[in-house]
Amino acid sequence: MTGYGLAATSELSTLLGRSISSARSSSYKARRAGVRVITVDARFTSQLCPDCGYTARNNRFSRDGFGCRMCGLAGPADHVAGINVRNRARLSVGTCQRARTCRLKADG
């Protein structure tokens, strides 16, 4: 995920289909281009609703699908996880105070 001159990667990216060398290469290329790289904890990012903050295993109703049981937000699970990784990165660098504020800034 990129934006605001930074790239966010998850610690789990190496376990979920990307090799360690690929993850290192991406970080190296980003740093070489002057982009700040932030590694965030990716646990529960595909189960956390970026809209209301509700986290539950059954929010991830299938391998590819996300549907919040609290507020009804729905979409591809990988996209939702990406939004949550981005929000955690922004929170860690202090560009916003809460995850919902991060989402509203980025998505309009």
Rank of each mutant, 00 (worst) to 15 (best):
Y4C: 08
A8I: 02
T9A: 09
E11L: 08
S13K: 14
S13Q: 15
S13T: 07
S13P: 11
T14G: 09
T14P: 07
L16H: 13
G17F: 06
G17E: 04
G17Q: 03
R18I: 09
R18M: 14
S19E: 03
S19A: 05
S21P: 10
S22T: 07
A23I: 12
R24Y: 10
S25Y: 00
S25P: 00
Y28A: 03
K29A: 09
A30I: 09
R31N: 13
V35Q: 06
V37C: 07
V37K: 00
D41Q: 05
R43H: 15
R43D: 14
R43A: 15
F44V: 01
T45S: 08
P50W: 07
P50H: 06
G53V: 09
G53Y: 06
Y54D: 15
Y54G: 12
A56G: 12
N58R: 12
N58D: 15
R60A: 10
R60S: 09
R60E: 05
F61C: 12
F66L: 06
G67V: 00
R69D: 02
M70V: 00
L73E: 02
G75V: 04
A77I: 10
A77V: 13
H79E: 11
H79N: 11
A81G: 06
A81Q: 08
A81C: 06
G82K: 13
G82F: 14
V85E: 02
V85Q: 00
R86A: 10
R86L: 11
N87L: 08
N87M: 09
N87I: 11
A89K: 08
A89Q: 10
L91N: 11
V93I: 15
